[in-house]
Nucleic acid binder design. Structure first.
Lengths: 121, 121
DNA sequence: CTCTATGCAAAAACTTTGCAGGGAT
DNA sequence: ATCCCTGCAAAGTTTTTGCATAGAG
């Protein structure tokens, strides 16, 4: 499913900035923040943040805060964990982290904070 | 061990603002941010943030970012997870969340994001 | 007495809001 | 033609920095 189809499905008008924005996230294998996206797209921050909010509202995109006060976004997909490195501030996706036993809570995202493999050497 | 003893142990000058600040965290059962602390203490934000940074540096306090762009702090103790509710923005401590199997990473903090028990009803 | 801590004011960093013009359907 | 989208400018929020004064050891 491409960007245009996703937007149509959620009744969002298909504009060039919006389509290329979603495309960037569809093609990324890790969460991205505004700083990373603006380099390629030269899109105004207002447009970025408003579209990301819209995508979050319709459930296409999942957003969360990193350690550096920036908000990271990724395409909603199978649930997985994220690792945020306090040294290099990288944000990675992790699969098969372990098992959770929590009753009564609805867990949308889990984030591990610490020192990543590279920085740990 | 009280606030004064802890500060002496780490060679930090014992001042009233600093002592009462640490006391608040010693007596709290959950992480706190500046907004919550200032209500009781009427301490300037500069003093708050600089002392928290100092406490973090000597290892007395552990800090992390919530979902609302605020930094939360708690007394360093046995490792445990935190749950941040995206609806009410509460920050809770959790014990016995599950097991982790991560090799090569050093995990300092584990944060679950979602909807808490109360908001889930 | 010396050196660190405090608090005000101002800056910094990221995100949001207001508003006028432009574009999709 | 209508209504949503875009981008500039300005404001909002949380945290940090500069600097003069006050206080601990």
């Amino acid at each position: 499913m491409n960007a245009k189809e996703i937007m149509n499905e959620h009744n969002l008008k298909v504009t060039n900035p919006r389509a290329s924005l979603l495309e960037v996230f569809l093609q990324s294998d890790r969460p991205l923040c505004y700083d990373e996206v603006k380099i390629d797209l030269k899109m105004d921050k207002t447009t970025f943040y408003r579209n990301m909010t819209t995508f979050e509202e319709v459930g296409v995109i999942n957003g969360f805060e990193s350690d550096d006060k920036k908000r990271y976004y990724e395409v909603s997909k199978t649930k997985h964990a994220h690792f945020i490195c306090k040294k290099c501030h990288s944000v990675e996706c992790l699969n098969e982290v372990g098992t959770l036993n929590l009753i009564g809570y609805q867990v949308d995202n889990f984030i591990l904070h610490g020192t990543c493999k590279s920085c740990n050497q």
